[in-house]
Design a protein around this nucleic acid. Sequence first.
DNA 1: TTTCCACAGGAATAAAGGGCGA
DNA 2: TCGCCCTTTATTCCTGTGGAAA
Length: 406
Amino acid sequence: MVGGFIVSSFPRASMADFTFEQDTQIFRDRDALTEDYTPNTLVGRDDELEEFHAALQPVINDENPSNIFLYGKSGVGKTAATRYLLGQLQEDVQEVPGVSVTVVEVNCDGLNTSYQTAIEIVNQLRPHENQIASTGYPQSKVYQFLWEELDACDGTVLIVLDEVDHLNDDSILYQLTRARDNGNISDINLGIIGISNDLTFRENLSSKVRSSLCERVVSFSAYDARQLRQVLKQREEVAFYDDTLSEDVIPLCAAHGARESGDARRALDLLLMAGDLARKNHDEMVREEHVRQGKEEIEKEIIAEGISDLSEHARVLLRTLMNMTNEDATPARTQDIIPIYRKICEETGKDPVSVRSIRDNLAALSQLGITSRNEINQGRSGGKFTKHELVYEVHTVQSALASIED
DNA sequence: TTTCCACAGGAATAAAGGGCGA
DNA sequence: TCGCCCTTTATTCCTGTGGAAA
C-alpha cells in the first residue's frame, strides 16, 4: 500500500512506470481554467451584469426580490455572472445589520423532475446526517419538507436553478414562485433565479409559471471571437506562467469557441486540455499541435459524457449509424436505419425496441449533438421524413463508446 | 384548394425496479 | 413483509405536419 492506493494484482511493466515527478512549469494556477473559478471581472458582460444587479438590489434592502430568468446559449457567462453577483451580494449583506441571505444552487441537469429538484433543495438546506432519500416519499411530503426547511431560514433565500430547461415538468417552478401566495412560507423572502440555454424554454412554460418566474428577464448574447480572445487572455494571465503559450494558441482556442456558438466554456476547456497535454508530454510550451490534439480529446469526452446516460438501444443505434457511415450510407432516413439496427440486435442477441422507441433514441442522440438530423419533405409522392448522420468522425465516436463500455 | 404521403412526436398506459413507513 | 409512491423505459394509439401532386 502506498498513499492509500491498494496495489492490485494485474500485470504491470514495472513499478517505476508509476512514480511521480515534478511537472514541467506551465501552470501557475490551473484551476483558473475550470468551471469553478470566478474571475474578478467578467469580460464583455457589462449590460447583462447591470440588469441582473438591478434585479437583485431589493435583497440588500430586505425586500422581496423579483424572480429572475437568465437565458442565452451555453458558455456565454450566465452561471459565472450569477456566482459573481451572488458572491458580491453575500459579502455586502454582511455589512448590513438585520439583513441575511441564503443561496441554494441546484443544477437541474440529471435531476429531470420537480420531485428530484425539491429533494435536492431540501438536502442542500439540511445537515449531512439528516438528508432524505431520492425516492419513496409522496410528492406532497417532499414539498412539506421543502416549506419547513425554507421557513427555518432567515431573511432572503435565493434558489438558483441552473439548466432549468432539463426539468420535464414545471410543478416545482409553480410551487416555488407561488409559495408565499399559497401560504406555504411566511417568514422569509424567496427569490428564484432560473438559468436556461434553451431559448424556447420560456415560451413553453405554462402561462401562470411564465408570468411569475420571468418577472425580470436577462438575456446573455453570445461572445464574438474578439471577446473570446479577451476572456482567454484574462485567464491565461492567472493560469499560465509567462511565455508558456505560443502565440497561435489563444486565437485557435477562441476560433473553436466562436464556431461553437460563441461558447467561452468550450474555448477555456480546449485551452485547459492543451495545457494538460503539453504538461503530460513534458513540453515547455503549449503549441498548436496540443490544441489540435486537445480538440479531439474534448470531442471524445463530450460524446462519452452524452452516451453514458443513454439507454443500451441508443448505443446500438449509434453503432448502426457508425456502420452506415463506414458504408457511405449516411445521411440515412429512419426507415433505412431500422432494418440495420434490427440486424445488429439479432447478431448481438438483443431484443429490438419498437419503432416509436427508435425514434425517441434517435431524437436523444441528436439532442446531445452526437448526430444531426435534416427534415426533408418530398410532398405527396414522397412524404415528410428525417435523415440522420454522425456529427463526429467514426473513430472518435468509436473510442468514446469503447471508453464507456470499458 | 384539397388531398396525399411518410413519418414525427404527444398522450396514455404498462411493467419493472427501488425506497419508505407501518 | 407489504402496500404505496416514485422513477425509468417501453408500448400502443392517434393527431399533426408541410410540401408536392392532383
